[in-house]
Simulated assay, not measured.
Amino acid sequence: MKFLIQIRSDSELIGYEAIALGFTLASFDHQVQFYFTDGSHLVLNDPQSRIYGMIQSLDLYDLPKAWADFAPDIRLDDVIGDVVVPTDAVCSTDFDSVLVF
């Protein structure tokens, strides 16, 4: 199956659970795409958060770069910028399931 995992929350625990779920699904040969929006930039950009480290492991699971849709004034850390691609629109019908956290 093809999953879109949208992470909107600024909670580290919620983001951690969402990414862990995505990694688990990828381990069972599902296609997973992470999509960061809204307040998730707060934990995504924090080098002390688990999400900061986890998102750098996408290539270990053969996952594509994560997508991000934040306000233009929000800048991501250079390390995170290497694994996150800005996007304007996502077509949820391209996925079998959309999970929102």
Rank of each mutant, 00 (worst) to 15 (best):
L76V: 02
V32A: 06
L44Q: 01
L4W: 11
V79C: 11
D82V: 15
C91L: 11
R50W: 14
K65N: 09
T37K: 09
D94Q: 14
R50C: 13
Y35V: 11
F28V: 12
V43K: 14
G39E: 09
I7L: 05
A68T: 10
V100G: 12
V84K: 02
D59L: 05
K65H: 13
D96K: 00
P72W: 12
T93D: 09
P47M: 03
T24M: 13
I55K: 03
V83C: 02
L60F: 13
D29N: 14
D73K: 11
I51C: 04
F36P: 01
N45E: 06
M54I: 01
T87W: 15
G53R: 11
S11H: 07
R75C: 10
T93Y: 02
S27N: 14
Y35E: 06
P86I: 05
D29H: 13
F28K: 08
S97A: 13
L21F: 15
P47C: 04
L60V: 11
S27G: 14
F95Q: 03
H41Q: 07
I51R: 11
V98F: 02
M54G: 05
P47G: 08
C91R: 12
I55E: 04
V84H: 02
A26I: 06
W67Q: 11
Q33T: 06
S97Y: 11
S11W: 13
L99S: 02
Y35W: 05
Q6R: 14
Y16G: 02
S27D: 14
L4N: 06
V83N: 01
Y35Q: 07
I74H: 02
G81N: 11
L21G: 05
S92W: 12
S40I: 01
L42F: 09
S49C: 01
L58Q: 00
F34M: 06
D46S: 10
T93W: 05
C91Q: 14
F3M: 02
K2N: 12
Q31I: 10
R75Q: 15
D10I: 10
L60S: 11
I19M: 03
L58K: 01
F23H: 01
F23M: 03
L58P: 01
F36G: 02
I7Q: 01
T93Q: 07
N45M: 07
Q48C: 06
I14P: 00
W67D: 06
L42Y: 13
F101E: 04
V100N: 11
A20S: 15
A71H: 07
S97D: 15
V84I: 10
S27C: 05
Q31V: 08
S57C: 15
S11D: 09
L58E: 00
Q48K: 08
Y61P: 02
N45S: 07
R50N: 13
V79T: 12
A71P: 00
D96I: 00
K65D: 09
L63N: 05
I5K: 02
Q6N: 08
T87Y: 08
D10Q: 14
D96H: 04
Y35H: 10
A66R: 00
Q56Y: 03
V90M: 09
V100I: 10
I7T: 03
M1G: 14
D46E: 10
F34T: 00
V98W: 04
P47N: 12
V43W: 14
F3V: 05
D38M: 06
C91W: 13
V43H: 11
V83F: 00
K65A: 12
